[in-house]
Every structure is written in C-alpha cells, then in structure tokens.
C-alpha cells in the first residue's frame, strides 16, 4: 500500500511539471553591404577616334565631328546607406586636348537588365580636367553587366569659334577620360 501511494505521488509530480505549449525565439541579423562600383565596357577595346570634318567650301570653318556612339557603356552597382544622398557619375579628361576644340560627352538614358533606381543622364557636357557630372540621381541599383547595360557614351567635337586662331592640325592622342561614381 505504501508503494501504491508512492506511485500516485510520482504521477502527481509528473503531472505538475507537464507543459503543453512552448515557444522560443532567436535573433537573425541581416547584413547589407555598401556598394559603389563603376566600370566602362565595350565590345572591343578600340580607342574612341574623333575627327573634325573639312569644310566643303572655302571660307567655311571646320565642321563639328559627327556624333560618335562609342560603343562604350557605363556599368555601375550602388547600394546607399540610410540618409545618404544619391550618387552621380563624374567624367574628366586628362592629357593634352587640342586647343580651340571642345570635347563633348553625353551619357544615354539608362537601359539594360539591371534593377533599382538607375541614374538620369545629365545631357551633353563639355569635358575638361575638372570632373563634370554626366549621370545623376543614382540610388540603390545595378545596371547589368557588359555592353547594352547602363548608359551608352556618345562623344562629339566642336570648334570653339572664339579660339579658332589656336586650332592646329594634327593627331592628338593619349587623351584619357576618367569616370567616378561619387556622392
């Protein structure tokens, strides 16, 4: 009988420790890295060649170079931090540019396989040693990689009529355009 009571007591003990519902939580930290990458892609590696046209008629000046859709595309990847201003692409020209000649660059509007808030073309800009904005309003986005993704670059030349006397015949090589993705 004593043992019987023991069994009953044990049963009661078990019953009081029983739980029929249970929850547990844990934390998951999700990390999104900061990203600011830019490059220029083309199908080949050809240098962009820009030429001014001869006048057809004595008495006229040099003709502006035809638009040269260079085949170069700007690709970029961008992830902004909270509160960070949107980014832009700046272009600058280094090397000795011919005097009296303006080098112009226009980024096309965005097209491609990317996603997010891709940038807006700033239109045709004269390149100089100082960085000039060619694309603005870049948020968190990516353009897609390679040609036909991002912004196509189109170059052109114009004679600076005010400096016509400084224009000299010749090939001007080793000019370099540098692109920077910046705030």
């Amino acid at each position: 009988m004593k043992r019987g009571i023991l069994v009953i007591l044990l049963s009661i003990l078990f019953a009081t420790t029983a739980r029929t519902q249970s929850s547990q939580s844990h934390q998951v930290r999700i990390v999104i890295p900061k990203v600011a990458l830019i490059d220029v892609e083309s199908a080949g590696s050809a240098t962009v060649v820009l030429s001014l046209g001869k006048p057809n008629e004595a008495g006229h000046g040099l003709q502006a170079a035809a638009q040269n859709a260079s085949g170069y595309w700007i690709n970029y990847s961008s992830v902004l931090a909270s509160g960070q201003p949107e980014r832009k692409v700046m272009a600058s020209l280094s090397g000795t540019a011919p005097e009296g000649i303006k080098v112009l660059l226009e980024a096309s509007s965005y097209s491609g396989e990317g996603k997010g808030k891709n940038g807006i073309s700033s239109g045709k800009k004269i390149l100089s040693g100082e960085p000039t904005e060619i694309i603005s309003n870049i948020g968190s986005c990516y353009t897609g990689n390679g040609v036909n993704n991002g912004h196509l670059l189109t170059f052109s030349l114009e004679v600076d009529e005010e400096k016509y006397e400084a224009v000299r015949h010749g090939d001007f090589e080793n000019l370099r355009v540098t692109y920077t993705l910046t705030e």
Binding site: I30, V31, I32, P33, K34, V35, L37, I38, D39, E41, N75, Y76, S77, V79, G112, G114, K115, G116, Y142, T143, G144, N145, G146, N149, G150
Partner: peptide, 11 residues
C-alpha cells in the same frame, strides 16, 4: 549577409 558584387553592373 548579402555579398557585394565584384563586377560593376551586378547586383
């Protein structure tokens, strides 16, 4: 953690 691309243009 998401991984940053190494190639510009990729997400």
């Amino acid at each position: 953690a998401a991984t940053a691309p190494t190639e510009a243009g990729n997400g």
